[in-house]
Design a protein around this nucleic acid. Structure first.
Lengths: 233, 233
DNA sequence: TCAAAAGTGTTTCCCCTACACCCATGG
DNA sequence: CCATGGGTGTAGGGGAAACACTTTTGA
């Protein structure tokens, strides 16, 4: 801020945060949208979000809005990008700091917030038209998610605490959009050394039960040290 | 923005952009600072930047401030992060969208802007105390630069159009902070296939002249396609 | 006994790494 | 002729990639 203090009138745009909330549901990558019940774009689908309050940080805003509008707490929350084109909101200038978050949707109840009629998960291949520039924001978030997947342990955020290796592989496949080799995947992910095999199994359907694993944060921190690469096939 | 339009009074923080401008000078990684001539932090060093105007995008603000305060144009400019803690500016709330840029400093004249007494390059190992939270911002930018260096062709932004392989290797070494093996570096970077060997040489000093190379953007785009990794040694 | 998903090894090949000497030039 | 940085090759090891069959279960 090398700004001149004597600047006659500093423009005061509104500042908001929006959140792109990803999950894996029904074996596909989905995100949470709300239906607006106020103008502009009344009745259209949009990302959850809201204006930054006087005394809260940007991340606090994102956390609060996420809680208020979707009931989701305790998530991996990361700043994505700030969109600030002058005309992105038809009312007045709104600069939005976008965060994205990953949750394991199992049993997360979706609740409509005060400024939405409805909240709903949408598969990425079946998104409705979005309000404002939210379509562009989603594109950007997806790109970042794909990217991030390859060098950070984000996949575990999309799964419950215990999961099978097939669950994990599916997360990678759904986000990357391509199939992976089962044997190579398992060898590599286990070789990284931060998965703990439990002695419990998931049995479902007419086939061999699958062993459950846990992601061990501490092991990741030390064994990883930064330069781990999650690249498969 | 699922914000309610009927919200009584939307807070209107000021929004600024700051720019972290890196270069390689005197064989070391440096960045550009200005000395503030206005309160607060009058007389202290800070990043160049300024408030966003009514009708310009965030990137336009960054581009304009960069030009106005340093005379630098046509640079690789990328949004870094948005810092918005309520108390980061002692006057009133200022949310700053930070960009970073890389320039080849050769012959870039540094000019003091209107709200600065002085503009100067500083080596990263000899930075003065910085105003606001700019110290933290610089740390963040450096981290990102190191990171980015390994998966994007940013090193070329720090060099003139034609450069020697030793020049290039030095850029990597200065940013990463460690030495690289000459033979491996050359084999790898040439193997990537987007450097064009020219038939001109730089001759200087009492030793064999060094061949000059050019970075060919188009070759990078196609040959790379996304998954290139610039990891050495 | 059948269907369906879990689980498991080996070989090949390529890339990363480590390492030391000759080349061209100016003074 | 000597000091200085430019420029080059190879051998070994490790990880990525390709590839198919056996195991366990419920119905």
């Amino acid at each position: 801020m090398g700004e001149a203090m004597s600047t006659p009138a500093i423009p005061r745009p509104a500042v908001a945060t929006d959140i792109v909330l990803f999950t894996i549901r029904d074996d596909s990558l989905q995100l949470l949208l709300i239906r607006r019940n106020l103008e502009p774009f009344k009745g259209e689908w949009a990302l959850p979000g809201g204006f930054v309050r006087e005394d809260e940080s940007l991340e606090e805003t994102a956390t609060r809005e996420l809680r208020e509008e979707t009931g989701v707490t305790d998530v991996y929350l990361e700043q994505l990008y700030t969109f600030g084109d002058p005309d992105r909101d038809p009312r007045f200038r709104v600069i939005t700091v976008v965060y994205y978050a990953l949750v394991n949707a199992m049993d997360r109840d979706v609740v409509a917030g005060t400024d939405a009629d409805e909240a709903q998960w949408y598969g990425l291949d079946a998104l409705p038209p979005l309000a404002f520039d939210h379509g562009r924001i989603v594109d950007y978030a997806l790109q970042r998610l794909r990217y991030k997947l390859e060098y950070a342990p984000v996949a575990f955020q999309l799964l419950p605490r215990r999961f099978t290796l097939t669950d994990l592989q599916t997360v990678y496949e759904r986000i990357l959009g391509r199939d992976l080799d089962k044997r190579n995947f398992r060898r590599k992910i286990l070789g990284l050394g931060f998965l703990k095999a439990t002695d419990t199994y998931r049995r479902e359907g007419a086939h061999r039960p699958a062993r459950l694993y846990e992601f061990v944060e501490e092991r990741f921190e030390e064994a990883a040290g930064g330069g781990v690469i999650f690249q498969f096939n």
